[in-house]
Amino acid sequence: MDLQLFGTAVVTLFVIVDPPGSVPIFLALTRSMDFRARNRAAWQAVWLSFGVIVAFAVAGGQILKYLGISLPAMQAAGGLLLLLVALELLTGKQDDPDSTATSNVALVPLGTPLLAGPGAIVASIVFVRQGSGITDYVAIAAAIVAVHAIILGFLRFSNVIVRVLKQGGIEVLTRISGLLVAAIAVQLIADAIASFVRQYGG
């Protein structure tokens, strides 16, 4: 296994996914859950993120080419989805039982596009394209596993934060998370627009 490639892939994916930054958003989206439900949500989010990134690492280029989807288009779509989530967090619609009973926040938006977002997907595709042998692919696979193990550790650790902040602190954290998610969404959309301009502007 190429240890240098492994280290590069781990650092790159860790910076893009940002497990510490995902904790407040995870807490905001799962604040109505008990201890066991929150742990289950953490596992589900990590497994979905892992599956999505592996799928795109293996066949991402072919999938996007077959569907005629450009990377900026996928980035813009992820940004729009996150913007809807941010509006729910800021307006308190996450508190409505009817709004959470019909969807699993561990899958969307936690698993994707927050964890397995456009940045992580593109990075995995690029790493695989640059790989030149079985040792490189093993290093990339090990890096994806390692990063998701780190993510799971951060999300499971969030239960300690819940006990410290209590319900009032989580309320404040929810609104702050809404602002952060909105900023992430706007940045994704802005980057996608800039890519479209470079691609089609001549």
Rank of each mutant, 00 (worst) to 15 (best):
T174S: 15
L152I: 07
L155P: 02
I170S: 12
L188G: 09
G168Y: 11
S158L: 10
R163S: 14
E171G: 10
G178V: 09
I176C: 05
E171F: 10
I176R: 04
F154P: 06
R156G: 00
L179R: 02
N159P: 02
F157P: 05
G178M: 08
I170N: 10
V186L: 15
T174P: 13
R156W: 07
R175V: 14
A185T: 00
K166P: 01
A182Y: 06
R163A: 10
G178F: 09
V181D: 04
V164F: 14
F154C: 13
V162H: 01
R175C: 10
R156H: 06
S177L: 02
G169S: 06
G153V: 00
V181A: 01
V160I: 07
V172L: 07
Q187W: 13
L165V: 14
I176S: 02
V164I: 15
G169E: 03
I161T: 04
R163P: 11
E171C: 03
L188C: 00
A185C: 01
A185E: 00
L173Q: 01
S177Y: 04
K166L: 09
R156F: 02
I161Y: 02
L155W: 00
V172Y: 09
K166F: 02
I176K: 06
I170A: 15
G153N: 07
G169K: 09
L180K: 05
F157T: 08
F154Y: 11
G178K: 09
R156M: 05
S158T: 10
R156Q: 08
V186W: 09
G153P: 02
F157E: 09
I161P: 03
I170D: 07
L179S: 02
R163E: 13
V164M: 12
A182G: 08
R156D: 01
N159T: 11
A185F: 00
G153Q: 07
L180I: 15
I176Y: 13
R175T: 14
S158R: 10
L188S: 14
G153Y: 06
R156K: 08
L155N: 03
L180G: 07
V181L: 04
I184M: 13
F157L: 13
I161V: 14
I161R: 06
L179D: 03
V162W: 04
I170H: 10
I176E: 01
L179M: 12
N159W: 04
L152C: 08
G169Y: 04
A182H: 06
V172K: 08
E171L: 12
G153L: 01
I161N: 00
V172W: 13
V160G: 05
Q167E: 14
G178L: 08
I161K: 01
Q187I: 15
V172Q: 11
L180P: 01
V172E: 10
N159H: 10
V160D: 07
V162Y: 01
Q187S: 15
F154D: 05
